[in-house]
Design a protein around this nucleic acid. Sequence first.
DNA 1: GCGAAGACGCTTGTGATAGT
DNA 2: ACTATCACAAGCGTCTTCGC
Length: 369
Amino acid sequence: MKWTTVQVAGDKRTKNPTLNDVAQSAGVSLATAARVLRKSNYPVDETLKNKVEAAAKLLGYVPNMVARRLRGGKQGVVGLIIGDMMDAHYGIIAEAVTERAESAHGNFAIVCNMQRDPLLEIKYLHRLLEYRVDGIILAGGGFDQWTHHQALTEAIEELKRTGTAVASLMPRGLEVPIFSADNEAIGMTVAKFIVENGHSKIGILLGPARNEMTKLRMQALTSHLSGCAVDYAIANIDSTAEAGAIGAAEMLARNPDFSALICGSDAIAFGAVNHLRAEGIDIPGRISVMGLGNTRLATLSSPRLTTVEMNFAQAGNAALDFIMSEDAASGQSPGEIIPHSLVIGDSFARIETPAGPGSERAETPRATD
DNA sequence: GCGAAGACGCTTGTGATAGT
DNA sequence: ACTATCACAAGCGTCTTCGC
């Protein structure tokens, strides 16, 4: 293999072969080499074509995407900012987006882990802008999303000015298309499910209060529960298994007679189930537990979690398709509502009260949705 | 059918000029 | 004589246009 050798700081290193190297090696012009390697429709003599392809193979030529971008073309790269690499639902999104970017758009995605830090999210937005990515999907921000909201808004505006398409996978009070489930509808779905299955005293462990998504779900959920005379106690906690365990313990201490625990994520539910079982509490015989998201944690949990399928992968793919579309350039799209559905597992039971107080017994739940 | 040249956006290097 | 500032040119790799 022939390598171009350049002197760098006193030692010898090899430089990646360029299109120019290929052209010289094949004895053709730069333009001819470019036409052959980019598989242009422009007619090139078959002999020269073979020479160029052979030279490219011999030199180990790999196109330089930075240079291609410099020329004014698309970078072929999208940025995806996820909230927490350790959280299963972000894993689903990252897997779906990276896979689709490659298979459907011939691109690849840079995945940034904001580690639940709003400031880090803004920093990544600037970094992705510096790299001139074609678009950015905001998949994080499921935490405190208001403290640095002004800085985030300004970063988004800066991206828009430079023609970088931005989409969000949750409502965040930003002027960007949202590809998310209907959070109020989710709240209603959960509330109806609780009522239909006879639970009248429940505990609710939701995600952080300073989060628009949590707020919308909570409003719909509590509004319906109040209308149905269901007693409830709410705690806003981090969306982690650890927080779920602590939250379940506190809920148990304050409201020992609740029959169902509704959790804002599968991670919270997973932690809650582990804690309750460690305390010797029968699930769902004594307490029913419900998660949200239908992530791997729902299937890993024992018993298997009853949860809500949020179709995170579908949301990520829809956002990616938007970013790569012509609509993204115009910046005019409201986004898309992603459907959700109940997933009946083994962690939730129906309460039957045929013979008055104290005679409740748990049965397989009923779902009308 | 082919190749020279220009354009893209940014950084780095160079030379001219002004100020101390 | 030295330093600071500014303007301009060159270079990076690729793609397209235009002329031969």
